[in-house]
């Protein structure tokens, strides 16, 4: 299997603000790849460079095997992008949006019309297809936006924070659509700040923090990095007051419990659970922060 994305030593700055500080990333073809990071980590900048919307300052960026600056047209023919802001035309109807984009993707008028009808029903927009997009709800706009990305088959689909601002139901239905894409053999690259989303959807995750990839792997691998089992200490109200990570062995759990027994009241209750993506994320970004603090001190 080839590489969908290959990035080496990628730098990007806006004025004096360095957004991407030497990113390296390889993503194999197929499946869902999640780029997980907080606001301002550089996710959108990164996706825009991959999609050819922004130029990198330095570094090698190859998408579907093509160089994003040298082989722009080939890259455009290999990708589609659904951005953070629903990129749909408010003044046109849903069907008109899809037909126009069909034509702009090289379909004949008849093909564009047929494809628009298909997508409208596939994304459950039949009742709204003839209405102006300006009247759509947030969830409907996102569905139309995603449909706009799928008019012609592209091997790589970028989704920049596809579910931001959606209610739970719309989010679930979008997740189903995303999984359906992956099952057709399309490589889906999505960014998200929701750990749950990455955990649920992605086969592989890269954690981006302050312009660098701080960790990558399968959700299970990332969780394994911070330990196997987590001990939660509960307070009198039954809320988690403290968490301790262990490597899952009896010795490690016993050690942590002995330590707790000395500090916590004797009738305190504990619970054992698998680590969540939240634990992983906090552990990874905290260690990245303390590393950069150390670097700062050395300098």
């Amino acid at each position: 299997m080839g590489l969908a994305i290959e990035v080496k030593g990628l730098y990007k700055r806006y004025g004096s603000h360095e957004v991407l500080k030497g990113m390296d990333l390889s993503v194999a073809e197929g499946g869902v790849f999640a780029l997980l990071g907080p606001n301002g980590a550089g996710k959108t900048t990164f996706i825009h460079i991959l999609a050819g919307l922004l130029r990198a300052d330095r570094g090698i960026v190859r998408v579907a095997g093509y160089d994003v600056t040298m082989e722009k047209l080939r890259v455009k023919m290999s990708i589609s992008l659904t951005g953070q802001f629903a990129a749909v035309d408010d003044m046109l109807t849903g069907t008109e949006n899809l037909r126009m984009l069909g034509r702009l993707n090289g379909l004949s008028a008849a093909q564009a019309a047929a494809r628009a009808t298909e997508l409208i029903s596939q994304f459950d927009l039949e009742a709204a297809g003839g209405k102006r997009v300006g009247t759509y709800s947030g969830g409907m706009r996102r569905r139309l936006d995603l449909a706009s990305s799928l008019i012609v088959p592209r091997p790589i689909v970028f989704l920049d924070e596809p579910t931001t601002g959606l209610d739970t139901r719309s989010r679930r239905s979008l997740w189903d659509s995303i999984q359906a894409l992956a099952s057709q053999g399309i490589t889906v690259i999505l960014t998200t700040q929701y750990l749950e989303e990455a955990d649920q959807l992605a086969d592989r995750i890269a954690v981006i923090h302050e312009g660098r990839i701080v960790a990558s792997g399968t959700p299970a691998e990332l969780k394994a990095r911070i330990g196997e089992e987590v001990i939660e200490l509960l307070n009198e109200e039954g809320e988690v007051s403290h968490t301790l990570t262990t490597d899952g062995t009896i010795t490690s759990i016993q050690d942590q419990l002995l330590m707790l027994a000395q500090q916590a009241p004797p009738n305190a209750r504990v619970r054992l659970r698998s680590p969540s993506m939240d634990d992983v994320f906090l552990a990874l970004t905290e260690s990245a922060d303390s590393n950069s603090n150390k670097e700062a001190k050395r300098a």
Partner: peptide, 24 residues
């Protein structure tokens, strides 16, 4: 891949302009 029936290609310069004119 979904439907190979809808093969994407580069639209002609004329089509591109026509679509944007209709849109505007």
């Amino acid at each position: 891949m979904t439907k190979p029936a809808y093969e994407g290609k580069q639209p002609s310069f004329f089509t591109t302009n026509a679509e944007f004119i209709v849109r505007s």
